[in-house]
Design a protein around this nucleic acid. Sequence first.
DNA 1: CGCGCTGTTGAAACTTGTCAAAGTTTGTGG
DNA 2: CCACAAACTTTGACAAGTTTCAACAGCGCG
Lengths: 271, 271
Amino acid sequence: MEMYDADCRKPRRTALTQIKPQTVVAEIGSSHPAPILHSLRTACSQCNLRELCLPLGLSDKEIHQIDEMIGARRRIKRGQHLYTAGEPFTAIYAIRSGFFKTGVIMEDGRDQVTGFQMAGEILGMDGISNEQHTCDAVALEDSEVCTIPFSELERLSTEIRSLQHHIHKVMSREIVRDHGVMMLLGTMRAEERLAAFLLNLSQRFSSRGYAANEFHLRMTREEIGSYLGLKLETVSRTLSKFQDDGLLSVQQKHIQLLNTEGLKQLMNTRR
Amino acid sequence: MEMYDADCRKPRRTALTQIKPQTVVAEIGSSHPAPILHSLRTACSQCNLRELCLPLGLSDKEIHQIDEMIGARRRIKRGQHLYTAGEPFTAIYAIRSGFFKTGVIMEDGRDQVTGFQMAGEILGMDGISNEQHTCDAVALEDSEVCTIPFSELERLSTEIRSLQHHIHKVMSREIVRDHGVMMLLGTMRAEERLAAFLLNLSQRFSSRGYAANEFHLRMTREEIGSYLGLKLETVSRTLSKFQDDGLLSVQQKHIQLLNTEGLKQLMNTRR
DNA sequence: CGCGCTGTTGAAACTTGTCAAAGTTTGTGG
DNA sequence: CCACAAACTTTGACAAGTTTCAACAGCGCG
């Protein structure tokens, strides 16, 4: 399905290699704060995710200005919050490595996962409108993000027009992605939703240099269900059915897509 | 429910009066093109919707610069498209009067209404990401929009920082609104969805100076259903049930809310 | 090594969708 | 201005899909 192409940037296939876990120094308690601070800073110029986060065609000087702006990297352990609804908004975050979910919670306890984010994607733009975050962002595995102080980003983007335009594109992309999810939630049945979800994940892993048809789900069945507007039992059952039909193989969180075409057809076939 | 507060700008209650239909000269065929062009231009400085579209605290000079940027007003008759998915993106639109729906259509014909927009709201931001619109915008009644050429907006926003920030806020607001809809589609049942929908409309009409508990639906049951992920029969039945329960009265498209509290409770009561 | 969290599966209940028919309103053309 | 057609709405009966409840299995962490 074209509609639910959540990650619709067209990655030029420059063989993004897997993100190598950086050796990371202790965050506090060292006797040499200055060099450590420096090592914790992100050098966009060195980052192989640059083309996901930044516009193309920046000059060296501009890249340097951006390097200067980016705040310290922040490591988030699995289960920890990057930010929480209600928290004052000061920055957006570029995921350097890892995997996140974002979601909103209603007073009565119901919650809705609004998205899953992976390396190279931007988190926190919901917070701009009211100067406070409106959803929670939780790491689903140990992760690392680059902090981008938003007011500095705005200032710099008045100087670098391609940066300004890039911000607009990234936000617009999020809007388009959300429309895709609305379509999914509004018009698709359980099997279609799950197929769309898996194909989307596959495409995103693939464009990051990981295998397209074999991956590890970072989230539980319940989280998938919340995202797709289904109960966890339905997710589980539907996965089992896909497996019975030979479309894929499931072992807990390990997924192997065996018949991508079949999954695609599942979505485009009315009834 | 706090979550589905789609129109979450806090309007200072400056008694917005109803938009008076402007007497409009013929759009083409006059012998005096210049004055007509001028009369079709929007003077933001004169517009009583200004505070919805623009940041506060602009200087006279800045307002003038913005006036200069805004392109001709465009009248869209009921049923006409403002833009269509696939069309090249050049501008966003501020609704001056009228009522729109936006929606996406899948190849197999299924479609999803992604939003209903009214005076003071901004349309077209989905188009920024790929330089082409990703959804259709259709007028549900005769409407008028101000065309805002996007590249000029970007240029001007490098000069006027509050304008730049405002753009970010408006886009972020759209993201937050979409999350609300996702919550609605993902976790609520038919009655809750419809209650949320009606309360949201009510709130938005109210903040524009119209009656909060009596209004005309501009859209069909089918369009409501598409937006809420329900079939038109379900919408119709649920409205009838609300009427039987004394929560509101329905006569075709005319709605009168009789018990707003009841509607709100309906949403917050789990099961 | 066991406890708890996560996942699987079955059966029954419930919600919403589907199909069908009839009523109502709106718009158009004579 | 009326008549007719098309579009929209309402309502019922039934079917289908999804959730709920419950029981149990497996994995992983402490």
